[in-house]
Design a protein around this nucleic acid. Structure first.
Length: 246
DNA sequence: CCAGACGTTGTT
DNA sequence: GTCTGG
DNA sequence: CCAGACGTTGTT
DNA sequence: GTCTGG
């Protein structure tokens, strides 16, 4: 995943940067990293406000006491198909929905057991992606501090014969993160507590709209420099020429 | 009732 | 915390 | 997600 | 193999 610095996000997302923790731009964001997420909450006066908050990618379940056990599960994604039935996602789904802004994300195509090939995926028009996410708070045992964590919902990738960018997405991977239009994101982020049924319906609509959002993306093979998290520069998004075979 | 799990991706 | 399994 | 590490007391 | 770190 790739993300802009906080101040730029404030303008672009028309939201207030709440967490003062400096959020630097990054072009290589792994699970576990802190990145800005977008959510709606009541401000000090009780008015609904759109906020940008630094959050850890990888949802930590609030009942885990030890950091070791909290970090054990891979929770950076939640399956949209079953999220409504899973204990871990139910609470967040009814009450803590967020959007995760990104300019691009990476997907790895598995070629063989050891060979994988990274692609950068982003809106062709340079706009921001708003992934559908869920957030949660976790109390750090050492200092009782609440830290915000999040996960990104995923769905089945389109059929590889779909044609166009949807076909490309399906060809390189069988899953994809669910992105939202800005209108859908506004609905999604509304912090009203939903019933489980209503939350399920809302999620279905996000899922149903995800391919249409993805239709505006482009998929470009990039250098395997992105495989090493220490590499973090805008050049990671530069396309590499596909190998000519003859 | 109490005890124990609570997840995804990808691979088989 | 909340659900499932026993 | 991928890359890279993984370990200590006591016994041989 | 599995976990940690980034």
């Amino acid at each position: 995943m790739q993300s802009k610095i906080g101040s730029l996000l404030e303008d672009e997302l028309e939201a207030r940067l709440v967490d003062e923790t400096p959020l630097r731009a990054s072009w290589n964001i792994p699970p576990g990293a802190r990145v800005p997420i977008l959510l709606e909450q009541a401000d000090d006066d009780g008015a609904l406000e759109r906020q940008i908050i630094a959050a850890r990618w990888g949802l930590l379940k609030p009942w885990n006491k030890e950091q070791r056990e909290a970090f054990q599960w891979r929770t950076h994604n939640a399956q949209a198909e079953t999220a409504g039935q899973k204990r871990t996602w139910k609470g967040p789904l009814t009450s803590r929905r967020c959007a995760v802004p990104a300019e691009a994300y990476y997907e790895w195509e598995k070629i063989t057991e050891k060979d994988k090939r990274p692609y950068a995926i982003r809106p062709a028009d340079g706009s921001m992606i708003l992934f559908a996410g869920l957030w949660e708070t976790w109390k750090q045992p050492e200092d009782e501090q609440l830290i915000v964590t999040f996960t990104i919902l995923t769905g089945a990738a389109p059929d590889e014969n779909a044609g166009g960018v949807l076909g490309e997405l399906g060809r390189i991977h069988h899953r994809m993160p669910l992105a939202m239009s800005s209108e859908m994101a506004s609905e999604w982020m509304n912090p009203v507590k939903l019933s489980e049924d209503a939350a399920q319906e809302l999620l279905k609509r996000v899922y149903a709209g995800a391919y249409e959002v993805a239709r505006g993306w482009e998929v470009q093979e990039v250098s395997n420099a992105v495989n090493t998290v220490a590499n973090d520069s805008p050049e990671l998004l530069d396309p590499v020429e596909p190998e000519v075979l003859f």
